[in-house]
Amino acid sequence: MSITNLAAKPRPPATAIDILNNDTARLYTHIHPILVLSLYAFQFRSIVADPVPALTSTLIPLSILQVAYVALCLPPTGTAVPTEKKKPGEKKKQAPGKLESGVNGKIIPAFLSLVLSALAATPLVTVTLILFGAPISTHHAHTVLCGAHLSLLAILPLVFVHGVDGQTWRETVALLLPIDEVYGGMIGTFLGAWLGAVPIPLDWDREWQKWPVTIVTGAYIGYVVGKLMGGTLLKGRKIMFD
């Protein structure tokens, strides 16, 4: 997969998402992956022991973390201002009533993205998992929960920053957007989940090889790596197929 610098594209000049320009955002965006991984590491034993209840109960803290992350760090859909406009030294506009705009502009979109990713993305991801070889007649709860974790990790922040615009989502799926930490997180999650399938067949007879522990583990690690890479090294680059 060759990645080159963003070349001039004729139509909608999609730009990389920057995190909000305040100290909380800059700080929390680094704490967030640590929290997510810690949460998973903390739950890992019980997930291995009994995946269904453990994965279900992990969903709640994961949702809280992800909602907090998008609300604190990311610009909600429609508000992302192209970075070019900000000139160095330009004064920031005075924000109206901080709490009110916080609830209206952040918390509600964050919860909307949570609902959308949980209800709309989870079934799609679950079907994809089955198409990739997940058990078709058994382990339904396992697979759905795996899909839910993937959706919360990968899709929730994307919905928050891009909304539900069809064209943008086509570009998202077509891997046409420039890479940023949200997009990188999504790609990382799915790549991680893909690679997570590798240890399943090995004859190591480990408890953690059972469905869907490795997939979810891969997704969490992939999410963190992808988010980190997307926010730093690869930021602004585009994925080229040819």
């Binding site: 994809t128 086509r170 570009e171 799926v173 077509a174 891997l175 046409l176 197929f241």
Partner: peptide
Amino acid sequence: GVLTAVSSLR
């Protein structure tokens, strides 16, 4: 198949 679907969307 997923890659060609992605590529098709492009």
